[in-house]
Simulated assay, not measured.
Amino acid sequence: MRIKNFQIISKGALAAMLLLSACQKMNRPGLGNYPKDTNPPGGALKFYVAFDGTTTNPLMNAVDSIRANFASDNPLASIAGVNGKAVQGENKKFIKYAKPNDWADLSRSFTISAWFKRNGQTKNNTGTNGPEYIMSFKASTGHWSGSSLLVFLEGDNAAGQVKVMVADKTGDNWFTWENSNASTIPGLLDNNWHHMVLTYNSSNSTMTLYIDGVANSKTRTWGTHGAVVFDAEKITEVRIGAGPGTGYDTDDWLSSTFKGGIDQVRMYSTVLTQAEITALFTGKQ
């Protein structure tokens, strides 16, 4: 009799637990249909947002397809992208995620891929000339920028610059394609969709920039640094379309937001080959 009572109580407790669990999940958008990419479990593609959702829920439209990782905020409008939908960057607005899944934990070498469309001079949030961010990782790392990753563009219709900063557990480095080394990129900000890929190869500590499937002849090297080891626990926010700063009403360059289109953001824990990068470009992925 005691065993029977114990079983009844256990079933009732289980039912209550299931009901409570269901209620707790109601604050999160239902999974539904969202863009997916071919990537085996544990594959190199660790974070992927296509922005192709067509629902009235902006969080659903910005879901990361690798782990159904929903943005915590998406105030950006949906626009026609290079392939399906994209998002339109806006002054003082950007998309937030808590983490880049396990990309920062596992990436010793890496690839970042994204499509963007920007017309003319990049601006800070107050309208003065300055950088505009494809993405950044806000982090409590102790780094002066308050970040562990910055990827941004700067320039005008005539020539654009690409600048990347990586800060890991042992140091930081800038990888730049800019005026000082005569490697600015014409046509980068000409109001057309362009594909940008950045690969960091730990075997030679070198970052390579690809624009529209073509590798820039000027690679950038982080001395003999080797493998990147991010302090993943200290990444507090992944931002698409903004720097890590909070001075949105000032001309603070670290708080600037992107004012163009962004589409097909991907992060891999390996270095993609030229053939793989070409496939992404020709497939508009």
Score class of each variant (00 low, 15 high):
259 K>V: 02
165 M>W: 12
168 D>C: 07
128 T>G: 14
269 S>F: 04
173 N>W: 11
93 K>F: 09
177 W>R: 04
180 S>R: 14
49 V>T: 07
34 Y>K: 07
271 V>R: 00
189 L>R: 00
108 R>V: 11
138 K>L: 11
159 A>Y: 08
271 V>D: 00
221 T>W: 03
182 A>L: 13
176 T>N: 12
220 R>D: 03
88 Q>P: 04
78 S>P: 04
42 G>I: 07
16 A>H: 11
105 D>G: 06
162 V>G: 01
263 D>H: 02
141 T>Y: 06
140 S>V: 12
261 G>L: 05
16 A>Q: 12
34 Y>H: 14
35 P>H: 07
217 S>V: 14
155 G>S: 08
116 F>T: 00
141 T>A: 12
161 Q>P: 00
209 L>E: 00
249 D>A: 14
186 P>W: 10
158 A>L: 11
238 V>F: 08
151 V>E: 00
74 N>F: 10
30 G>Q: 14
95 I>N: 01
54 T>Q: 13
87 V>K: 00
132 E>V: 02
221 T>D: 09
172 D>T: 13
85 K>C: 01
127 G>R: 09
171 G>F: 08
163 K>M: 11
54 T>N: 12
89 G>L: 03
198 L>V: 12
59 L>N: 08
38 T>G: 06
271 V>K: 00
170 T>Y: 14
274 Q>P: 03
150 L>S: 05
205 S>K: 06
178 E>F: 10
181 N>K: 12
